[in-house]
Amino acid sequence: MMDKFTFFWCLIIVAMTFFFIGVYKNFAVKIGFILWVNNRRHNGEGIGWRENLALLIPLPNRQVVMDEALLQRRIKNRSEFLWLRHLLIFSGFVVIFALDLFLTFAGHYAHHYFHYEYFLSGPGKGLLKFGMELSGAALFIGLSLGMIHRIVYAKAEKTYVELKLLLLLWLVTATGFLAEGIRLAGQPNDPLMLSSFIMRPIAQWLGTSFSWNWPVLADGVWCLHATFAAAFFAYIPFSKFIHILSAPLGRSITQNGEYAYQKRQRISEGLL
């Protein structure tokens, strides 16, 4: 059988290829076009490139970034529930992604190059594990809320929420939890058991109720999780998930619509 990590790296390569193709096609090219269009427009006025740059990127101020990218004030104005849902998904996703990156660099890489074990097997791992479970739980709750809301208000929400996307991310999260639970069920003496506040009771219950081949099962579920995760990443630039990249950028730069007003004013000044 193929080694677990070989499988993982194959998946990563495939997924990342798709991901980068998509990001290039659906994002980088678009941004390039927008910059070019804005640039071209102002060239006609005979403005130097420095002024040009200032014109084509209205620098978003800190307040706009805070409101739009982090607090999503507009969604909150529309509905508190949607805001809560989105905030759970957003924060869960961002935090778990960040912690994962941190584990990769400060854990695995530090272990490999510097034999620094604090975050891989030391007490730091427990800290990371706690954080990841917390953010994972937030993500999971947010997604579940979203799915229930989407199914209940199918008619109104169909235009705005795509069920299959929600389902995909929900599966990634659910299999992640499941994989960890099953792994822990096979290792009841794991020293990090204490940091796992969600899966510990489930793992203990599984471990005492059933006597399956936990390590093999854990590998299987883990592979499933990895596949879903890779599929999700490959799908990001081709689906509504592109907003992860484009919305914070677009909304911050257009200053939540203020840019439209400025543009219209500039046109009317041009006609004066």
Binding site: I242, Y259, K263
Partner: peptide, 15 residues
């Protein structure tokens, strides 16, 4: 998806 890139590109600030 409401990312507002079209507004950034639009010369008239229409969307």
């Amino acid at each position: 998806v409401g990312c507002m890139l079209c507004l950034w590109a639009c010369p008239f600030g229409a969307p």
